[in-house]
């Protein structure tokens, strides 16, 4: 898995690629929480286009990010969900819990 970060004003975009599993989901969790709690980004976008696989620990990391964003008055937004990411969020009944957009442009416009 790889995570790269783009920052612009108060918006942060994480581009995640590869497999998010039990071995590396703590990295996703820590990146999201740091951005929300320490850097205090008002919007944190997560690009899941290139995520080939995500397990329940990866989903749990996103949920933790979502909860932190609510606690700190910011927004956690997902966009470009790959088939794997969409399937898991759907099965976990979390798709409607997150703010989800098809593209980065759409996510930034809201």
């Amino acid at each position: 898995m790889q995570i790269s970060v783009r920052r612009s004003n108060t918006t942060t975009i994480f581009d995640v690629s590869g497999d998010i599993d039990f071995a590396n989901s703590p990295e996703v969790r820590e990146s999201l929480l740091r951005e929300i709690r320490e850097i205090r980004a008002s919007r944190v976008l997560v690009n899941l286009t290139a995520v080939r696989y995500i397990d329940s620990s990866g989903v749990a990391s996103l949920v933790e990010g979502l909860k932190a964003s609510r606690d700190y008055g910011s927004r956690l937004i997902l966009f470009g969900l790959s088939i794997a990411a969409r399937e898991v969020l759907q099965l976990s009944r979390l798709l409607k819990v997150f703010e989800v957009y098809d593209s980065e442009e759409e996510a930034l416009a809201h």
Binding site: D55, S57, A60, S61, V63, S92, L94
Partner: peptide, 17 residues
Amino acid sequence: ALDEIRPGGLGLHLIHE
């Protein structure tokens, strides 16, 4: 149960599903 939004506990649900 999945009616609570919290991390953890999803793995077994995905297995049974």
